[in-house]
Design a binder for these strands. Sequence first.
DNA 1: GCGACAG
DNA 2: ATCTTGTCGC
Length: 285
Amino acid sequence: MTLDRPEFRPDPDLSHEEMEALQRDIADAAEFEDDLPFDPEAVALNSPVEADASGNERLGASSDAPVVVGVDQAFLEERAVSAIVAIQDGAVVERVHSVTPLSIPYIPGLLAFREGGPILAAFEELSVEPDLAIFDGSGRIHFRQAGIATHIGVMLDLPSIGVAKRLLCGEPAEPVADRPAGWSTPILADASVVDRRETTEKRAGSETTREQGVEAPEGTVIGHAYQSRQWDREQSINPLYISPGHRVSASTTVDLVDSLCAGYKLPEPTRLADRHADDAKAQYE
DNA sequence: GCGACAG
DNA sequence: ATCTTGTCGC
């Protein structure tokens, strides 16, 4: 794939201030409304996608159906194994991975600067053209509304979605415990969420222009908690926290993830990428 | 200072 | 994320 916005590359050598400034630029460039090159109904799955451990993929993509890729990573000490699995018409059409060094530690809010480069390296190995990417982590559910799903989505100008297992920020509109499969509730921006880059701070004499953000309006929906699966009795499964990455609205994000789930907690693209990352990792240890 | 914090 | 045993349920 070609980088639509190479200037937004998540350089791990930037200072934290520069990283946050870049994220505000990413949020400015992000589109949190539907701009999909396909009909959302066209990605629906009827059953789990066959993993096919032998590595065989359906050949010759003689289809117009949208290609959805799942992105996930596994780690070996100071290296990241980034995996991408592409599905189309309910079948795997390509699987790639890359192994790259990691340069900075995980810092909440700055995940893209640790894992973004490695993920872009994996995208360089991909030969099919994706129509939608599902990332392991947040998109708009982020302090500056620029989580890794948004960051990579904007760089590639690719519709993207963030699927996280835990909530980074924001507040669920309703309690999320013990909900039935299919249930969802909005995640509302809280005081930790900045809405857009804002400046102007004029003082007598000096005019300081800061690159800060203003608090997001209360009630801003930055994503949803979505119960993709639930047990019938005792134990309870936690919901997924899904959010728009780029070129998808919050509500469509819920519909798409719902369509891409096939009986497991994680949507199929993510589940397959998860397994592929683990398989690839095993070859390096 | 305290708490919260994707992977 | 990663390290792991036990356990639930189809």
